[in-house]
Design a binder for these strands. Structure first.
Lengths: 320, 320
DNA sequence: CTGAAAGCGCTTACAG
DNA sequence: CTGAAAGCGCTTACAG
């Protein structure tokens, strides 16, 4: 293994100078910096992260935290985000570590150990819940973190998200404009996550603009209620669903009740392979890869003096 | 931050003794070991992994490698494995790091850096391909690794897998016994992965035992061909599909062509939420969580002197 | 602009 | 059974 000591010996320099040169310290002449880097390359030098991290008292690692309770279909989305995160980390010589568990206690222990034992100071959370014990701990431990999804009103931290009001608006108009839907309804869960509220807001705005009457269903994981809702709303010819999964679920129930009636569905996340859906099913791609990349930028790029401090990044969406 | 030096001072011992005591070195009296551990707990001692790894010249980290090209639905399965892996790693004070990228070059670079810079010596691959450049590199670098899925004939390394012949056999019989299928067909991809060959073997054995004529379709990602196949085989009343995804895909095509004919489908992985399927769709759960856990055991548990060396673990499967 | 020295928090060969 | 000392490969305050 080639160390900075080897490079120093080869060039007749001290290890201090080599260390500084490799870190592009301005106090070292440009000439020396160049020659050191060149020799380092030539000798196949690879920095030892453990040594660096020990002296820096901080790991070159980003911890990615999975939510405890999630639907398996969401995993599709999470891995897309992981791809984006890792692409950015690699080019910055950072490492990706993950915390995942079946209970809050497990995850808390996992993250705690990352902070105190592995000295990880940067985290990305694949969710954004209110009163989340992991988030509370990260705040108390004073480490940096970014969530995927904006915090609920009253909370404040770094986050990456889509413009969900706009996405709700665009999705609704997509059904109205491209498929001449007269009465698209909106389906959300009973959780009332911030992104649900925003997409609904967009839906309501689009309906108002089109002079149509909005109808909102909050699913309760209860087929009976949904079936009743479908029967009670015979005018429905479009579904704007909070995600692909809810969308497909509603679509199936609708078709069960009205085998010969047509309905256009628009979901969010573009997380289902096209073979599982059909031509009446549409989706809004919210670009998980880009969300991951943006999360890293927000977390690791310290703004220059003259730049504005940004506390969130909005990623574009796209109908597919 | 509490260090072993602090513990040593408090107890009037040397750091060497404290270090050895914490590592359960037999050369330290049981009494001292106990008192050191107790004091360490009391003082809230947390080992610094970077320091440990630097002296040990090896990270307490397992690198998990994702395949480059995968269908998004497979992500559901991968995250299940990650859960299992991490559960085992946490209890061993190990950390989980991942390598994921959009090209082989990216992944190779990622893994190479894990080996030389982060000093990671243990890897789990979420796939098991023939002539895979990552696997070849791991072998050349002489680090330990386990694959999910057994290697093709002629190759030899540590792996975790199901008994796929048995799973093919059981799945076929499930359709025959529980749903009185007379003519279940077998659907595989054109890739011919080892697990496909094995499940087909099981299918053929079950058909032979039942005195039925087997029919195998290798999909080519070509709807025309599949439709033709379905028309050419009007006797088909069951589908044993290589995975849930292929199964659902075939199911949809079948229903498109024969809206009123019935067919029972059995897929593998149990990776689709039940809301996306119906009562004619069945799946074999291959226990991803357990596969992940087993991979860690295989990778990190060195067998005792008198134990046999095992080079693979077979995880059970289950109809759901 | 460069260097000698101390230090980060551990482990372990050597000595007793 | 325990300890003093060297070392792992870096960074950085201090000195020149």
């Amino acid at each position: 293994m080639v160390t900075i000591r080897d490079i120093a010996r080869r060039l007749g320099l001290s290890v201090s100078t080599v260390s500084r040169a490799l870190n592009d310290n301005k106090r070292i002449s440009l000439k020396t910096r160049r020659s050191v880097k060149k020799t380092a390359d030539l000798m196949g030098y690879q920095p030892n992260y453990n040594a660096k991290n020990l002296t820096n008292r901080e790991a070159n690692t980003v911890g990615v935290v999975f939510p405890v309770n999630n639907r398996v279909v969401d995993n599709i989305f999470y891995v897309g985000i992981l791809r984006g995160i890792n692409a950015q980390l690699n080019s910055r010589n950072y490492v990706l570590s993950i915390a995942i568990g079946d209970s809050t206690e497990q995850v808390i222990e996992n993250v705690k150990s990352m902070i105190t034992r592995a000295q990880i100071k940067h985290f990305i959370l694949l969710y954004s819940h209110q009163n989340d014990p992991v988030i509370e701990m990260l705040q108390k431990e004073n480490v940096d973190f970014v969530t995927i999804g904006k915090p609920a009103a009253g909370q404040d931290w770094l986050y990456v998200d889509n413009d969900n009001v706009q996405a709700g608006f665009d999705g609704t108009n997509y059904l109205i404009d491209h498929y001449q839907c007269q009465n698209p309804i909106f389906v959300q869960t009973h959780n009332g996550w911030p992104y649900e509220i925003d997409r609904r807001k967009g839906y309501l705005a689009a309906m108002k603009q089109a002079g149509k009457s909005p109808v909102v269903l909050s699913t309760q994981e209860n087929d009976e209620l949904e079936d009743q809702f479908i029967r009670d709303n015979p005018q429905m010819d479009g579904i704007v669903a909070i995600d692909d999964y809810s969308g497909l679920q509603m679509y199936h129930r609708f078709k069960m009740i009205n085998p010969n009636k047509n309905v256009e569905v628009l979901g969010y996340n573009n997380s289902l392979p096209s073979e599982l859906t059909d031509q009446h099913f549409h989706s809004v791609d919210i670009h998980p890869d880009e969300m991951g990349q943006s999360a890293v930028k927000l977390l690791l790029d310290k703004p220059a003096e003259d730049e504005q401090v940004i506390d969130h990044i909005i990623v574009g969406h796209e109908m597919v």
